[in-house]
Simulated assay, not measured.
Amino acid sequence: MAQARVPRQSRAKAPKRSARAPKYVYFFANGKAEGSSALRDLLGGKGCEIAEMINLGIPVPPGFTITTQAWAAYRTGGKKQPPGLWAQVLDGLARLEAAVGLKLGDPERPLLVSVRSGARASMPGMMDTVLNLGLNDKTVDGLARWTKNERFAWDCYRRFITIFGDVALGIDRRAFDRLLDETKSRTGARTDADVPAEALKGLVADAKRLVKDTTGQPFPQDPSEQLRLAINAVFDSWFAKKAVDYRRINRLSDDWGTAVTVMAMVFGNLGDTSGTGVCFTRDPSTGEKRFFGEFLVNAQGEDVVAGIRNPEPVSALERRMPKVYAQLITFKDRLEKHYRDMQDIEFTIQEG
């Protein structure tokens, strides 16, 4: 898809970065990354391996990683972002916008990002992630017009309000899930993917009402503020009870902290030619050299682990999307050869 210039938007200027401020943000885009797997302690497992994959020629959406050093300064500073961090985040965001030709908050062609945790050691499911950040009452309409897919846009918006409400605003996820279940029952939808666009609009209105009733404040509409709150929330997820208990049981240090990776979204929920999955380069139970995993069509990553739909074996992808499957085989072989060990891989397909 050709990239188009987007109009400038006003954004609050961050204070100038101190000359003494550490390098808190490491950028990656267009086949180049500032980090590598050697920087695991600084960039976390996710951040350093994203950089390593880019250096190997694996297609990864552009973005930037905020270091564990920033988390340490956040913790010692009373859970406030350290001086210089926000300026570096805005610099990284501007470079990300330039790399994809989109702009966060643009009402016509909005950039949406994910905000992901990543400690140096794997802590599966213990910390938080925010998807589809950048959506608001204006950008959702722009996304619908741009993609010519109204259902997709409103599905992303309801997902964002749910995750952001849970992770950043502290609202029990089950309250949002109940609203979704009520909508599915009312419309006769068998799965989330069957809920029609008009019903999703009503669901978004209900979710925003829940946020207002619970917090006393309307759902945040400024994408820059959404990003700031999401980064803080991912930092804070290191202190969540389940994460603390996991580290205690597995004898991991409480002082490591987490990095935060901000990436351009790739959408697995754009229709039947999109999807998401998890796979292993070998059978994880036996070690047999057999491509093993599962995927969902028209879904985002959280759907695979949530167990709300029955996934298909990754081998079925060869029939559905043969070219995509061939690429996945190439990339999984390249990764296993490089790391000399079995690899587990998360993947998303957008209009494959």
Rank of each mutant, 00 (worst) to 15 (best):
R173E: 11
F292R: 02
A207P: 00
N136A: 05
G301Y: 09
Y74T: 03
N55A: 15
L85M: 10
E318G: 09
K323F: 05
N298Q: 01
T162E: 11
L102E: 12
G134L: 03
T258F: 01
A19F: 05
E336C: 09
E182T: 08
L328K: 03
A299C: 08
G105S: 10
D137R: 13
G47E: 01
Y24T: 00
L56G: 13
G134A: 07
P284I: 07
F219D: 01
A73P: 03
S185R: 15
I345K: 02
P196I: 12
S315H: 13
V100P: 01
A70R: 01
D245F: 06
W71C: 00
N55T: 13
A175T: 13
F176C: 07
L335K: 00
K138C: 04
F152L: 12
R8S: 13
G271H: 05
A73R: 06
R309D: 06
K46A: 04
D344G: 10
C156W: 03
F235V: 11
A189D: 02
A94H: 10
D222N: 14
A207Y: 03
F64H: 01
S18K: 10
F292T: 14
F152A: 08
D344Q: 15
P83V: 02
R251K: 14
D236M: 06
Y325K: 09
A51M: 00
E302K: 10
I171E: 01
A243N: 03
F28L: 08
D194T: 09
Q81G: 05
G125T: 10
Q9I: 15
L200F: 07
Y157N: 01
M1K: 07
M342V: 10
S122C: 07
D106C: 14
Q9N: 12
G142M: 08
L131K: 09
K332T: 15
E302A: 07
G352F: 10
R159M: 06
G352S: 06
L200K: 11
P313D: 09
L169D: 02
I58S: 02
P223T: 05
A193K: 07
I54M: 10
V204Y: 00
T214P: 04
A72V: 06
G134H: 03
G77N: 09
S185L: 14
D255L: 09
V60D: 04
G277N: 07
P61G: 01
Q9E: 14
Q350M: 13
A199S: 11
V304K: 06
A306G: 05
E150I: 06
E312D: 11
P83K: 09
F267R: 07
K201Q: 15
Q81V: 12
P7M: 13
A193D: 12
E312G: 00
D222Y: 05
D341E: 15
R174N: 11
L328R: 05
Q300E: 14
C156L: 07
V260A: 04
K79L: 15
V314K: 03
V278D: 04
Q217F: 08
R95S: 00
A70D: 01
C279M: 15
P82I: 08
M342T: 10
L96D: 01
V140I: 09
A19E: 13
V113M: 08
W86I: 00
P110I: 14
V89A: 05
G216K: 10
G293F: 01
G84D: 04
L96M: 13
L93A: 04
N149H: 12
L43I: 02
Y157L: 13
E294P: 01
